[in-house]
Amino acid sequence: MRFEHKDILDIESLSVQDISMILDTAEGMKEISKRPVKKVPTLRGKTIVLFFQEPSTRTKSSFDIAAKRLSADSISLSKSSSSIVKGETLIDTARTLEAMNPDIIVLRHGCSGAPHLIAKRVKASVINAGDGIHAHPTQALLDLMSVKERKGKIEGLKVSIIGDISHSRVARSNIIGFTKMGATVTVSAPGTMIPRGIEELGCKVAPDIDSCIDDADVIMMLRIQKERQESILFPTEREYSNLFGLNSERLKKAKPDAIIMHPGPLNRGVEISNEVADGNNSVILDQVTNGVALRMALFYLVAGGSRNVDTI
């Protein structure tokens, strides 16, 4: 079985089989990062451009490490180092990059749909590393991987996502991804952070955090962006934390084996307390570790690799 997609733009366009194949491949990749020599020659001679138009440390590093562990040559472009600041359009930048024959372009962009715009116009594979408030497919895939690793399955699980659903690409991709893989997703946030029609993505909306954590197998907390306060989404961080923050007191209502996730970076003391973030239920650092393996798997698959990774 071969992986048929040229690009990874969102979770919607991946089938259940595609996602299973990606997760299985990523599982096989994990071992490479534990070797003393953390490098295999699989993608030697391949060029991967990391084109990040929005600031990012962890996602970019994760992609970069994934590329290097597979021996691909990766180069980084940021908004300030590209010609975007000189007024070049995204399509022109993509075409210019294309002329240098990269194999894969990883794009992070502030505008929803930006990766879709360039994917149609370049021969290289495009991997969406987060576009606007639309999608963050690699984050959702590594979250699926982390849950599967801890729980042994995804189907039948109850997943609660708490935070700014309106402005979260992570939430959108996870709602679609977990629902597609057979889990039940519930979201909760102040009314200002629940976008209209979100139920049509397949999730339920809970009015408060307490009513959606008591029976959850997975509790995913989203980062509250302080800069959003000016768009009148919540009165103060204090009030947000009181109503929607996850602390040890609140966690007592959850199932003892519930796992706590967060895409990072954390706002400790706002959406998540120190004790919960660092506690036994937290899989936050597993998510980061799995991120590298998952991105290695995607590079491998879009570059034309087959399912069998035993040979790596």
């Binding site: 929803s112 749909g113 606007g132 639309h134 959108r172 209209r196 029609g197 049509e200 993505l201």
Partner: peptide, 13 residues
């Protein structure tokens, strides 16, 4: 337009 299509596409409505 604000609504399900905008929510799905991640476009502000």
């Amino acid at each position: 337009n604000e609504g399900i299509v905008a929510t799905r596409l991640g476009i502000k409505g």
